[in-house]
Design a protein around this nucleic acid. Structure first.
Lengths: 233, 233
DNA sequence: CGGTATCCCCCGCGATACTG
DNA sequence: CAGTATCGCGGGGGATACCG
């Protein structure tokens, strides 16, 4: 029999804060929980949110979280699995949100080029597209990131209510709007360091397409609520 | 010039949750913050709350926390230093408290003999003595832990309003009350697994002394508010 | 796709000693 | 008391290959 205690490093204290920290404050774990809270259920989807984490390590953390009763692993009929938060896991939502707010207020750094990974950024953006704001007809938005490595330069966001799909290769549909920018600028908008409308005005972000789409575009992107949190420094 | 980023492991993400986690979710750090929040300011006092952490590592974490603006290190005139939480650090209080509540609800284990360190337990208890409930006259409470290693068996709590002092050697004052128990039982009461009055009744905890002191004793110990939080399992 | 298995490196951290 | 310095190790975790 395997006990959950065997899969994680202990602190040797009876304090509940310490025993919680053993589980949820281990390296990478808060980010994995963040992904689960944001709705990712499949292994690969979770991993797209933590691309620098090796799959072996992600698998290990998921196993620990399962043993600790924070997630439940369900087998799918079509093959594969889904990871669902239990109530214990769901109750971590305010805890993770507080980390976000605190991080935004006190320790966030300006986006650096190394951190501005277009894949992670696009994955984040796709996840929080304001689907109900989308037009009735399908719109395809193409993103071009200057200076991004070859394989991550162009992305297609296929917006068709109530779905938002992300492609790394041309899906073939007609492109309605093209967004030309660099990943640092787009990510800076994303985390609230830059104002989207301002960035468009100063042509840090350039939109190409019919004016009704250009005008509507900002409303499709629902920026993280954390962009409202102002830095305290 | 040293940057705070050099002193900690990074995640390489622009997400505020990730950047917060780099600082506050590193190993041992939540416990160090817990100690600071509970009022410890001197290096050795902090370390008494995390006795299994090496002093080298504690010094390193304190340095990182200082570089990140969470604590401020002040030199004292009489020599030595004090570590004070900044506003950024103080704002972590609800975050740590949530970890405690969540840990209590979902992952706390029954106290094990290895975890029931009398030194840590007594240090915790001393810290949250209900000073205003103490009698006018000084009372000395002696704790005897059966089965504890020689050097940690007997402790003296010198209760003299508004102070509560802890000694590992007989301070010489007359002992008003003697508490005879074992560390697991006392710690179980401390974390809420055991009811203090019940444990006294079943003689898991034995009090020796005048009846007015025996009756008053439970009111001096202000158990952690977490004892009110019931396990959800 | 959704992971496991294996190898191996490196550095986080514990232990110990030492210092102002 | 309040740390620093040094050394050595263990295992966390990265890289790669592989499997169902």
């Amino acid at each position: 029999m395997r006990y959950r205690e065997d899969t994680m490093r202990r602190y040797g204290q009876f304090c509940p804060v310490a025993q919680a920290a053993e589980v949820i404050a281990e390296r990478w774990t808060p980010l994995v929980i963040r992904e689960l809270l944001s709705g990712s259920r499949r292994f690969n989807d979770i991993q797209r949110g933590v691309p620098l984490m090796s799959s072996a390590l992600l698998a290990k953390r998921l196993k620990t979280l399962e043993l600790c009763g924070i997630i439940e692993r369900r087998s799918l009929v079509g093959g594969g699995h889904e990871y669902h938060l239990t109530q214990a896991g769901e109750e971590l939502r305010p805890w993770v949100e507080m980390m976000g707010v605190w991080g935004q207020r006190w320790v966030r750094r300006p986006v650096s080029p190394e951190e501005a990974d277009p894949a992670l950024l696009m994955w984040d953006m796709r996840r929080s597209i304001n689907v109900e704001r989308l037009p009735d007809k399908r719109v395809v938005v193409r993103f071009d990131f200057r200076e991004a490595p070859k394989g991550k330069r162009s992305w297609w966001l296929v917006l068709a209510r109530p779905e938002a799909d992300l492609c790394l290769h041309d899906p073939g549909f007609e492109v309605g709007l093209t967004v030309r920018t660099d990943a640092v600028a787009m990510a800076s908008v994303w985390v609230g360091d830059l104002d989207l409308l301002g960035a468009i005005r100063t042509r840090l972000i350039m939109l190409k397409g019919p004016s009704h789409l250009r005008r509507a575009f900002p409303s499709w992107l629902s920026l993280s609520p954390l962009t409202e949190v102002k830095s305290a420094r």
